Simulated scan of single mutants.
Amino acid sequence: MTKMNMLQAINSALITAMTDDEKVMVFGEDVGHFGGVFRATSNLQQKFGKARCFNTPLTEQGIIGFANGLASHGSVPVAEIQFGDYIFPAFDQIVNETAKFRYRSGGQFTCGTLTIRTPYGGGIAGGLYHSQSPEAFFAHIPGMKVVIPRNPYQAKGLLLASIRDDNPVLFMEPKRLYRASVGEVPEEDYELPLGKAEVVKEGDHITLLAWGAQIEVIEKAAAMAEKDGISCEIIDLRSILPWDAETVCASVKKTGRLLVNHEAPQTGGFASEISATVQERCFLYLESPITRVCGLDTPYPLAHEKEYMPDHLKTYEAIKRCVNF
């Protein structure tokens, strides 16, 4: 085991995958000699050569179109979109080609070996064009997976599983954790299951559900609630598509309450899908309405970033309201 931050864990996963399979290649804007804007791909070009780690033109639609072609011909591309906010020019390629390639060909062709990496989320004073959380847009697309890690250990294991999965995967990295989150990570090869949530902490009175950087937020809120005698169960969803409804519903049936926290705006956020499913499956077990603590329905603000964030204080107040309903 070695202490790594999330960037180092991602870099380690890419080195492991590229060493294990010569068909794995990494590309995107400035990922080559420069190592990407966050340095996640540092030294890959020096180690594996320019044919396997290289820069692309500044065109997100072109990056994913190119990646689709590579994947459909047997390569294992790992395409980087520099910021999650920049992924929208590639939306047509992802929605209408990446996710549908296998289906529309009756299983004859596939883009299943494609992994798309992108940093997302706020907390770094990035303003409205470098802070968005677009995961819910992609959760609406059958034919691909959406995965989000919460710490370095999860990042390496989930990224290796994503690269090796038989389906295209959008791997979203919470950028405010890149250097802030440090933990023990195995140097060797390992994978973590996709589509399976993790119960981080068991509790009795309320289920707290989040993913990515918001896990730390709900952990802080839970610690505050524990002082009031409220026992919180904490679940990291890890995969947005497919999401592990069985684990979540089993927890809600035990605690009788659910709070979902995500950084994206509330309206149309993935918490809505979770709430609807849990209400359908657990209605008779619920002791209070399902609670959402989310970002505001505004463009992501620069000057008022702290007010926008669904932080531990907002979450703590929501926990009390839910338990005392």
Rank of each mutant, 00 (worst) to 15 (best):
G28D: 04
T110H: 13
E184G: 12
A222R: 04
A223W: 04
L194V: 02
A245E: 10
Q45S: 14
N55K: 06
D311A: 05
M309T: 06
G183D: 10
Q132I: 13
G229Q: 10
L58D: 05
R102H: 13
S105T: 14
I215S: 02
N261I: 12
D236F: 01
A221W: 04
P152G: 04
V31S: 06
E29S: 10
L302T: 03
C282M: 05
A13C: 04
A17W: 03
K100F: 07
R281N: 07
P301V: 00
L241W: 04
V323L: 11
A223G: 05
G127L: 01
Q108I: 13
I94C: 13
Q214G: 01
Y316K: 02
A125S: 05
G28E: 02
T207N: 01
R150N: 01
S275D: 04
F38W: 10
L209C: 08
I319L: 11
F325V: 11
M172F: 13
A136M: 12
V31T: 03
P193V: 12
I116P: 15
S75L: 15
P289K: 00
Q46P: 00
G195Y: 08
K145F: 07
F88K: 07
A221V: 03
L58N: 06
H304E: 02
E233M: 12
A136G: 06
V278W: 08
D236A: 02
A155Y: 08
E60N: 15
S162M: 14
D244N: 11
D92F: 11
F109G: 02
L302F: 15
E280P: 00
L302V: 01
C53P: 08
I116A: 08
Y300F: 15
H205E: 08
P186M: 02
E263L: 08
V31C: 00
V260Y: 09
V199R: 09
Y129S: 04
I141N: 10
A223E: 15
N68V: 06
V217Y: 09
E305I: 07
R257F: 12
Y129T: 06
R104I: 15
I240V: 14
N261A: 10
R104C: 09
N68E: 00
I290G: 06
R104K: 13
T277I: 11
V217L: 10
I234R: 08
Q82W: 09
I215G: 00
